[in-house]
Simulated scan of single mutants.
Amino acid sequence: MERCLWPGNNPVMVEYHDKEWCVPSEDDQYIFEMLTLEGAQAGLSWNTVLSKRNSYKEAFHHFDIEYCSKLSDNDLLYIKENYSIIKHLKKIDSVRNNANAIIEIQREYGSFANFLWKYVNHQPIINHWETDQYIPAETKLSKQISKDLKKEGFKFVGPVIIYSFMQAIGMVDDHITSCSYHTKNRKN
């Protein structure tokens, strides 16, 4: 079995690559989780964030959007001090902030997924990179989505974060073409 090079031999990274990365999702709770984790990654490695994923799930009640929208400042400080998550207070505060922004989008669009997937006409972009080195860090589309999310009040949604987020929720398939998990190679 071939796979992209970036997960290396790290079991957590390999599992994420094989089971989640570039797999389309329209589940708002999962999308919120990925937005939170990608925002937490800013300036850090994805491995660092994934190693703390279970703590994030526990701290934020499995990314229950309604629950996270109602967290108080004291709740956020408690989470910072008592859970093994990234200790950056602005990143932690962005969870509440972004939960509230998602609720507003859900009111207008029916779901956060509807809002996001309209950018790709509800079909993932399937790229055909031969090696990992060609995969971009950001694109014109990630810049546009970033800009639009910022207008909606989201935090930690720069174009690089958003491109990784697009990969995380399967809006983009950036598996290299020889990878067994590329859309054209999947058996399911």
Rank of each mutant, 00 (worst) to 15 (best):
V160E: 04
Y109S: 06
I162T: 07
M171R: 07
M34H: 04
L116V: 02
F112Y: 13
F63L: 06
V157A: 11
I65E: 12
S146G: 01
D93V: 07
N114K: 11
N10L: 05
W21A: 02
V49D: 10
D132W: 06
K90G: 09
E152V: 00
E58F: 00
N74K: 14
E33T: 00
Q133D: 15
V160Q: 07
V49L: 08
L35M: 15
G153A: 05
T177H: 06
E138K: 15
N9Y: 10
S45E: 09
W46H: 04
T48E: 09
D173C: 09
D148K: 11
L116K: 08
G158P: 11
Y67S: 05
Q144E: 15
I79K: 12
E130N: 12
K143D: 09
E130F: 07
L141M: 11
K155C: 10
Y56N: 03
G39V: 03
N188Y: 14
D18M: 02
P7T: 05
A113P: 13
I145M: 07
S178W: 06
N98Y: 03
Y181C: 09
I65M: 08
N97M: 03
I145T: 06
M13V: 02
D27K: 10
M13E: 13
E66M: 09
D148I: 00
S178M: 11
I162C: 03
M1G: 13
N185Q: 09
N100I: 01
N10C: 08
F165K: 03
H88V: 02
R186D: 04
A40P: 03
L5H: 13
C68T: 03
I145D: 10
V160S: 12
A59N: 07
V157G: 07
N74S: 13
E130V: 09
K140P: 11
